[in-house]
C-alpha cells in the first residue's frame, strides 16, 4: 500500500487488567472506505478515540496524515472529522446555528461561514429543515446533521462510529449512499465502525474484523473469505431435472475440473466446493452429459458467513478454555 493516510503500529490500550485493544497494526490508504467490524465491546470506539488523540494508548502509536495523534491531537483533529455513535446537538439552538458553532470552532472566517453552513446543509439534504431547532430533529436527521458537521470542516478523513444505529432501513440506505458518494466525489477517506454486516458489505472497500481488541482479519470481501474459508471459498449448487444415470462417472469428471475441491450429491442436487470460480465449466460439463439443468446457484461467502465463522471460532475457544479449567 502506498502512502497510507492512517497507520497504527502495535496499538494497545489497557483498562486495568483488561485489554481493550491488543497490539493492533493497520494501514488505511487515501480515498478508501474502511469498515471496522466487530461485536459490541470489541474495542472499535477505543481505537477510534486513540486515532483522534482523545484517548492515550498504553503502547504503540497512531500516525494520521503523517502526524502522531497522541502527541499532536489538535493538528490531527484539524484534518479528521469524527461523528460519535451518540452525537448530540444543542437543543436550544437551530440546526444551522449548531453547524455554524462547529464551523467557528474550526476557524472558518466569519465572512463565509453562514453561506458555507447553508451549502453543507443542502448537501446532506437538510436544506428545508435548517432553521428548525435541533431538539425536533429525528434520529436520521440528526445523523445527517452530524455528517454536515463533519463536512463543513472539509476533512481529509471522516470517522463515523456506528452511523446507522437507530435509523430506519430506507434512511440507512440513503445515508450510506450519501457517504459513498461524498467519499468518491471528494476523495475522502472514510472509516466506519459497525456491527451490521450487510451495511458494511454495501459500502466498504475493505473491512477489518475486530474481536476482543484484536484485528482478526482485514481485506476486501474476496480476500477475507479466501483467507477464512481457505480453499472452500465458493460453492456451486446445480439442480438437474432427472436423476443422473451414472453419478460416479460424472463425479469423477467434475473432480477432474481444475478448481473443484469436493463434490457432494443428494438426489438431484449437486454441490461443488471450489477455490476458483469455474461455474461455466461445470455447467458445460452437465450439458455435455445430456443433463437437464434447472437451476445453478453460486454461493459466495458474505460477511455474514465470515463473521459467524469468526464468532463460532471464538465460542469454541471459550468453551475449550472452560473445559481446561
Amino acid at each position: 500500500m502506498e502512502n497510507p493516510i492512517i497507520e497504527l503500529h502495535g496499538l494497545t490500550k489497557n483498562y486495568g487488567a483488561k485489554k481493550a485493544v491488543d497490539n493492533l497494526s493497520l494501514k488505511i490508504s487515501k480515498g478508501e472506505i474502511f469498515g471496522l467490524l466487530g461485536p459490541n465491546g470489541a474495542g472499535k470506539t477505543t481505537t477510534i478515540l486513540m486515532m483522534l488523540g482523545l484517548a492515550e494508548p498504553s503502547a504503540g502509536e497512531v500516525i494520521v496524515c503523517g502526524t502522531n495523534a497522541t502527541r499532536h491531537p489538535i493538528a490531527v483533529r484539524r484534518k479528521v472529522g469524527y461523528l460519535p455513535d451518540s452525537a448530540g446537538f444543542y437543543d436550544n439552538m437551530t440546526a444551522l446555528e449548531n453547524l455554524i458553532y462547529i464551523g467557528r470552532l474550526n476557524g472558518i472566517a466569519e465572512r463565509e461561514i453562514v453561506s458555507r453552513a447553508q451549502k453543507t446543509m443542502e448537501m446532506v439534504g437538510l436544506g428545508a429543515e435548517m432553521h428548525k431547532k435541533a431538539a425536533v430533529y429525528s434520529r436520521g436527521m440528526k445523523q445527517r446533521l452530524g455528517l454536515a458537521d463533519l463536512l463543513i470542516r472539509e476533512p481529509a478523513v471522516m470517522i463515523l462510529d456506528e452511523p446507522t444505529l437507530g435509523i430506519d432501513p430506507a434512511g440507512i440506505r440513503d445515508f450510506l449512499h450519501l457517504i459513498r458518494q461524498l467519499s468518491r466525489e471528494q476523495a475522502l477517506t472514510v472509516i466506519l465502525s459497525s456491527h451490521h454486516l450487510h451495511q458494511m458489505q454495501q459500502i466498504c472497500d475493505r473491512v477489518g474484523i475486530f474481536v476482543e481488541g484484536k484485528l482478526l482479519a482485514e481485506g476486501n470481501l474476496e480476500t477475507l473469505s479466501g483467507h477464512l474459508f481457505g480453499k472452500d471459498s465458493l460453492v456451486v449448487q446445480v439442480s438437474v431435472r432427472e436423476a443422473v444415470a451414472a453419478p460416479e462417472v460424472l463425479e469423477r469428471q467434475l473432480r477432474g475440473l481444475d478448481g473443484v475441491n469436493s463434490v457432494v450429491t443428494t438426489a438431484n442436487i449437486w454441490e461443488l466446493s471450489c477455490h476458483t470460480d469455474v461455474t461455466p465449466d461445470i455447467v458445460r460439463l452437465f450439458v455435455q452429459n445430456g443433463l437437464n439443468v434447472t437451476c445453478v446457484h453460486k454461493k459466495e461467502y458474505g460477511l455474514d458467513e465470515i463473521y459467524h465463522r469468526f464468532f463460532e471460532n471464538n465460542v469454541k475457544k471459550e468453551s475449550f478454555q472452560w473445559e481446561v479449567r
Binding site: L52, R77, G81, A87, G88, Y90, I102, N106, D149
Partner: peptide, 14 residues
C-alpha cells in the same frame, strides 16, 4: 449526557 461533549472535543480545541 447530551452527547455534545465528545463531539465538541473531537474539534481542534484543547
Amino acid at each position: 449526557n447530551n452527547g455534545t461533549l465528545v463531539r465538541l472535543l473531537a474539534q481542534p480545541v484543547y
